[in-house]
Design a protein around this nucleic acid. Sequence first.
DNA 1: TCATTAACGCACTATCTAGTTACTTTCTTA
DNA 2: TAAGAAAGTAACTAGATAGTGCGTTAATGA
Lengths: 218, 218
Amino acid sequence: MTTDIEPTAPAAKPRIRDAEATKARILDAAKKEFAKNGLGGGRVDDIAEKAKANKRMIYHYFGSKEGLFQTVLENAYVDIRTAEQKLKLDHVEPKQALEKLVRFTFDYYLKNPEFITLVNSENLHRAKHLRKSEVVKVYSRKFVSMVENILERGVATGVFRAGIDPVQLNITIAAIGYYYMTNRFTGSIVFERDLMAKDALEERLRFNIDTILRLVAP
Amino acid sequence: MTTDIEPTAPAAKPRIRDAEATKARILDAAKKEFAKNGLGGGRVDDIAEKAKANKRMIYHYFGSKEGLFQTVLENAYVDIRTAEQKLKLDHVEPKQALEKLVRFTFDYYLKNPEFITLVNSENLHRAKHLRKSEVVKVYSRKFVSMVENILERGVATGVFRAGIDPVQLNITIAAIGYYYMTNRFTGSIVFERDLMAKDALEERLRFNIDTILRLVAP
DNA sequence: TCATTAACGCACTATCTAGTTACTTTCTTA
DNA sequence: TAAGAAAGTAACTAGATAGTGCGTTAATGA
C-alpha cells in the first residue's frame, strides 16, 4: 500500500466560501438561461452548472425556480431604470432630452437583449412575479415623471405641442425599439433584410428619433 | 354472472373517422396551448386531450411537437396576411388607407392575442421554424408592397412626404400596437393603469393613428 | 364480400427535471 | 479552542413528458 499523498499533488485548495459571490454567479447564470429559454424552458440543473454552484444552493438562496426568476426579473428592471436615471435628462434641453432617451432605449435593448426576453417571459405568465415587486413600482414612477418633466418643459418653451400623455409617449418610445429587437429573427425573414446589420440598426434609430420628434412637434 | 349488455346502454356509437376534422381540432388546440405556454411550456398530452384526439394522431399528422408548432405558426401568419389583403387598401385614399391599416393591426392583435405569443415564442427560437416556410415569404412580399403602394400614391397626391421607407413604416405600425398588447401585463403594473380597459384601448388606438399620420405628413 | 388502406387507440418507455434528504466542510465568535 | 452556524455537496425521488410499438376498427373500392 502506497501513501495517499502524491509528491506533486497541489495543496488541496480549500473551498472558498463566499455567499454573495455564489449568489451573484447563480443570478448571472440564471439571467442568461431564462433569457435564452424562457422560464418554462430554462433548466435549474443547467443554471447550477453554469454558475459553478451546487443546485442545492439555488433552493437555499431563492427557494424555488420561480423565486429565482422573480429575483432575476426584478434586478433586470432595476438595472434599466437606474441606467435611465443616470442620463439626468431633467437637466437637458427638452428636444435633446427626448432624442437622448430614444437613443438610450434603443441602445439598451440592443446591448441587453436578455431584458426583452425576460419581460416577454414574464408577460407569458401574466406578470405574476412582477406584481409582487414593490421596488419596481417605485422606480417606474420616477421614470414616468422624468418623461413628464421633459414634456412640460418642452411645452413651456414652445418646442412641443401641449396635451401629450407622457405614458402614451413612453410606451411609444419603448415600442418602436422593443418590437424591432424582440422580432429581429422573424422580422429579418418577413422583410427580407438583416435587421441586425450595422447599417440597418443605424437607419432604424434615425427613423425612431424622427418618429418621436414629429410626434411631439407643435 | 350477468350479461355484459345493459338494457339502457346506447347503441355503441360508431367512431366517426374524419382526418381533416381531427387535424383541425389538433391545430386549434395546439394554437391555444402554444399561445398560452410557449413552445417549451406547451404539453403534447394536453393538446391531445383538448383536441379530443389521441396523442398518436399528433405524431401521425405532424411528426413531432416542433412539426406541429411550425404548422400552427405558419397558419397564424397566413391568417393575418389574408385578413390584411381583404382590406383592399389599394383602392382606398392614401391617408384613409393608412389609418385603416393602423386600426386593423391594433384590432387584430387585440382579438388574436395568440398571434403575438406565437411570434414571441418563435423569436425565442431564433425563427428556426419560420425560416423553413416559403408561403410566409410570398405573403410577406404582398404585404410590404401594399404599404409601398399606399405611400407612393400619397406622395403623388402630396398628402405624404417623400422618402419614407415602407419597411420602416410597416415596422412602426406593427410596433406601436404589438408592444402595447404583448406587454399588457407588465405594462399595467409599470404604468399603474389597466391598459386593457375599454377607454385605455380607445385612447391608445387614437394615439397610434395620430403617431403614424404625423410621421408621414409633409 | 373481401382485402387493402387509412384512422384511431392503448399502454408502454427512456429520459428528464424540480425539488429534497442527509450529510461534510469551512468560518465565526464566545 | 470548542461549538454552533453557515456554506457547500452528492445522491436520490416522484412525477412528468416526448415519443413509440403494435393492435383494432372503420371506410373504400374492386
